[in-house]
Design a protein around this nucleic acid. Structure first.
Lengths: 182, 182
DNA sequence: TCATGGTGTTTAGGATCTTAGACAAGGAAG
DNA sequence: CTTCCTTGTCTAAGATCCTAAACACCATGA
C-alpha cells in the first residue's frame, strides 16, 4: 500500500476545514485531481503535490512526516498546551499536532478590552465554549450578548461572529472548534 | 523553481556512492528515469520517487527535509561524533547528516583481534587514514602490511581491502572516505 | 586500434497523470 | 415542491511521466 498519500491529504485537508474545491482554487489545480489523489486513484507528481500542499500551506517534509494512526497523547500538562495568540488574546491549544483531528480545544484568555478583531469572523465549522472567568461580549449573526462565568455559547462558524471583553478584568474561556480552523 | 528534486536526488545518490544504473536496479526503475529526474526534466510521481528512495534507502520525509545549502556545522565536540559501529569495531562519524557531503571522516577504534569482517570489502570511492595508536594489519589487493602510529594509507575502495588488529592493544585510526559509503 | 565495460544522456512510444466539464447527492431558502 | 448552492465523484481528452533502447563519452586492456 506504500504510504497512502490519499489518506494523508484528505486528513490534512479536512483538518484545515477546506473543501476539495477551495483547496484546488488556492493550489491552482482542479478539484477533480484532489478527489483522485485522495482516493489513491493516481499517484501525483511531486510538483502537483507540492502545489496542493502550498494551498494548505504545509511543506512536503511535514506532509510525509505525519503519522496518521499515531497513538494519540491523551493527557496534557498545563505547560504542554501550545501558546498561539498575542498578549491581548491568548490561545492555548490542547492538541496542536496537525494530525487528522477534527476537534480542537482551546483555553482562551482575553485581556480587558481585547477583541478577536475589528471585523467579524466567518468560516466553516462549529464553535462552542464556556466562560470560566470575567465577562465577554459575543456577537453572532445579528445578536449580541454578554456572557459571564458558567454561561456558554454554541454557533455555526459561518455566521459572522466576534468576541470582545467589555469588562475590566481578563476573561477566560474554554472553547472547542471543529474542524480545526483557528 | 520550487524545491529542486533533481539536485536533491543527485546529491543523495552520489553521497551513497551509487551510479544511476545501480540505483535504478535496486529501485526497480530505469536508469533513464533517474537521469531525467536529476536534470529536472520531469517531476516524478510520488510513487516513482518513493521507489527510487527505497533503493537508497531513505524515507520521503527525510528526502524533503534535506537542506542542500545548509550553513554547515564546522566544529564538533567529542560527544557530537555519531557512534556507528559495534564493541569490536567502533566508528565515530564526524558529520553524520546525510547531506550532500562527498567526504566523511571517521574516528575508528579496533579492539584487539577485531577486523572489518571475514570477507574483503570492495566498493566505489577512495579511503585514506592515519594510525594514531596501536598497530593494524591492512590488506589491499594482494598486498598486506602492518601499520603503526604515524603511518598512513590510501587506496581506491574498489580494491578488495580489509583491516585487522593483530596487536594486543586497541588500535585507533583517523580515516576519511569518499563518497560517504561506510 | 579495436574491444569491453563503465558512466550519464537522449528519444519514441506506451502508460499514467491532469484537466475541463458533467454528474449525483445533500441542505437551505423560497 | 422547486431552486440554488454546496459537496465529492466520474470521464474523455490532452499533458506529462516512464520505459526500452540507442547514443556518446571516457576509461582500461588486449
Amino acid at each position: 500500500m506504500s504510504i497512502d498519500v490519499g489518506a494523508r491529504l484528505r486528513s490534512v485537508r479536512t483538518t484545515f476545514g477546506l473543501s476539495q474545491r477551495e483547496l484546488a482554487r488556492r493550489a491552482g489545480v482542479t478539484n477533480g485531481l484532489i478527489s483522485l489523489i485522495e482516493q489513491n486513484r493516481v499517484s501525483p507528481s511531486v510538483s502537483s503535490l507540492k502545489k496542493v500542499l502550498d494551498g494548505i500551506p504545509m511543506p512536503l517534509a511535514e506532509f510525509f512526516t505525519l503519522d496518521l494512526n499515531v497513538a494519540p497523547q491523551a493527557f496534557f500538562g498545563a505547560d504542554e498546551l501550545v501558546e498561539l495568540g498575542n498578549p491581548e488574546v491568548s490561545l492555548r491549544l490542547v492538541a496542536a499536532q496537525r494530525n487528522g483531528r477534527q476537534l480542537t480545544v482551546l483555553h482562551e484568555r482575553y485581556a480587558a478590552g481585547a477583541a478577536t478583531g475589528e471585523d467579524m469572523l466567518a468560516h466553516r465549522g462549529e464553535e462552542a465554549g464556556v466562560v470560566i472567568r470575567g465577562r465577554i461580549e459575543l456577537t453572532v449573526g445579528g445578536a449580541t450578548r454578554v456572557l459571564g462565568p458558567g454561561e456558554a455559547y454554541y454557533f455555526a462558524s459561518q455566521l459572522p461572529h466576534r468576541f470582545r471583553n467589555v469588562g475590566r478584568e481578563a476573561c477566560e474561556i474554554i472553547s472547542a472548534c471543529t474542524p480545526a480552523t483557528f
